[in-house]
Write a protein that binds this DNA or RNA. Structure first.
Lengths: 306, 306
DNA sequence: TTGTAGGCGTTATCAC
DNA sequence: GTGATAACGCCTACAA
């Protein structure tokens, strides 16, 4: 028998050799059935195109691989109504789930959770306690960025807002709140995509702000492109900051100041949680990653008022 | 019984209702064993961080989902020696494979193929006929770019080469060959990453070329960043072109001229091939996608010789 | 130390 | 049309 046991040396070798010759491979399906474990975990995301999910996926995939687990990805293609179905369906063939469904109504999620467990939730507000929750402390990241800008003498700061439904947008706004009237915040409805940032350049310039924080790096890069086309000097006339620290951010010109989010670590931690649960232990209830401020050259001293 | 059969209306309904109440869910493992089909396909890539694989993955995942198939990803983390093991291991739990292993020796691949079938190969040179092969016609893309540049009056063209082992780099070089001495090609050893392109700026300027084609968009963007820092006007003093048409390419400033590669379609086609094979049919032996030239503003008329 | 029976949850076959 | 039964391939436990 393959594996570790108390068998006669010689016979074991003979079996192994025979197996080799017939190139026998144990059937995964059969052992799944017998063992009750598929050695697979599901990773459910709303949109595989979003670079934000790639880092976590890689972290998850690599960490899980070390323990012999594979990851099954499911892209819900932004179809919120498909999410529950997909999640349940995925859970059926997996031992556990990493669920990223930022737009699923709280109530529905609550109802689903028992059926999906063990599961770790990504990027949700911490309301339910039954499943561990991993997320980014967006508010903290925003605070770091604002403090950085204030240190450079900025007072009137524009914010290119993300999708209004997005929980992470709300969290970012909360980050601004703590500054009260120390700063003049100018929120500008925008979006989460490159094109959104690109289109918002005019409004940003009209706002009279000396600095702008974008919803994320992608939006910031869109804005940067538009500003370049308009001949607006960054950071001399306007400071620009992003959020996420996507790989491109450090190579744009000027390099983007941003709040760095450790996506891969998030994936790794998700696995760590699942692994605990798979072994019957209780994982840490939740963890919020604090983004790290990365000051680059897209932010500088506030321009003198014209 | 669940499904479609010839059962009494009333009794079927009763069963369905009971199932609903007990919220019964058929065990995927058990049906895999009984049916001999896991309804899962494996996607094996050397590096999940590479944006090039995301498009194909999404295409694959969405297309497969329509037929009720899921995709299991495996990241070999650039460990060439791990690839065969991972591939076999993956194949065991999947009905079929999409294998992207551009660096695996031909001989080894040949030996592995029977064990992995049905499988479709991504981005390999077409040498073996036993498995369908999907790829990009890099040479054609290069030819389009060169013709584009020649039309703008460029004659001395630098090429920022990718990794020397890379088959796709060899293919690109072949694209240049057909122009013979109509152009003066200046190959510059570089790489496949942002930093590589960034570092190559000096050499490009020294080369006396009026235009440069980068191994891919990422490299081109690295170069663009460095040129910006050096105060080199693009395209006025130097035209720059990339390869791939990654999402960022259209939003850089200047927007990047490139050869557009339909990654998502590639994934979709991979699924189409697998689906044929899973149904016992013979799929098209191979398909080479012709990149589409996308002329943007990073390329312009050749500068007058200094 | 080695063999053997029973079960994991479905599906498929074949009498009824 | 409907119900019983034998696989599917592996694992575990118990008996030899």
């Amino acid at each position: 028998m393959n594996g570790l046991s108390t068998v006669d040396r010689e016979i074991a070798e003979r079996v192994l050799k025979a197996a080799e010759q017939l190139n026998y491979t144990p059937s995964a399906a059969a052992r799944s059935l017998a063992l009750g474990r598929t050695h697979t975990i599901g990773y459910i995301v709303p949109d595989l195109t979003n670079p934000a999910f790639h880092g976590a996926m890689r972290g998850l995939s690599l960490a899980a691989a070390k323990e012999g687990y594979r990851v099954l990805v499911a892209d819900t293609a932004e179809q919120v109504e498909e999410e529950p179905i997909l999640a349940v369906e995925s859970r059926r063939r997996c031992d556990a789930l990493v669920l990223c469904a930022p737009r699923m109504p709280e109530e529905e999620l609550r109802r689903l959770l028992p059926e999906l467990a063990p599961v770790v939730l990504l990027n949700r507000e911490p309301t339910d306690e039954s499943s561990p929750l991993l997320g980014i402390d967006w508010a903290s990241g925003i605070r770091d960025l604002v403090r950085h800008l204030m240190g450079l003498g900025h007072r009137r700061i524009a914010y290119l807002a993300g999708p209004p439904i997005s929980a992470s947008n709300a969290a970012r706004l909360r980050g601004f709140e703590s500054f009260g009237s120390t700063i003049e915040l100018v929120p500008i409805p925008c979006g989460a995509m490159f094109a959104d940032g690109h289109a918002a350049a005019g409004e940003v310039l009209d706002s009279g702000a000396t600095a702008v924080i974008a919803f994320n790096d992608v939006v910031a890069l869109g804005l940067l492109g538009a500003l370049h086309e308009l001949g607006v000097e960054v950071p001399d006339r306007l400071s620009v900051a992003g959020f996420d620290d996507i790989p491109f951010a450090q190579f744009t010109s000027p390099a983007l100041t941003t709040a760095s989010v450790p996506q891969m670590e998030l994936g790794e931690l998700a696995w760590a949680s699942l692994w605990e649960m798979l072994n019957g232990r209780k994982p840490e209830q939740s963890a919020m990653f604090r983004p790290r401020l990365v000051a680059r050259s897209s932010t500088g001293r506030a321009a003198k008022p014209a």
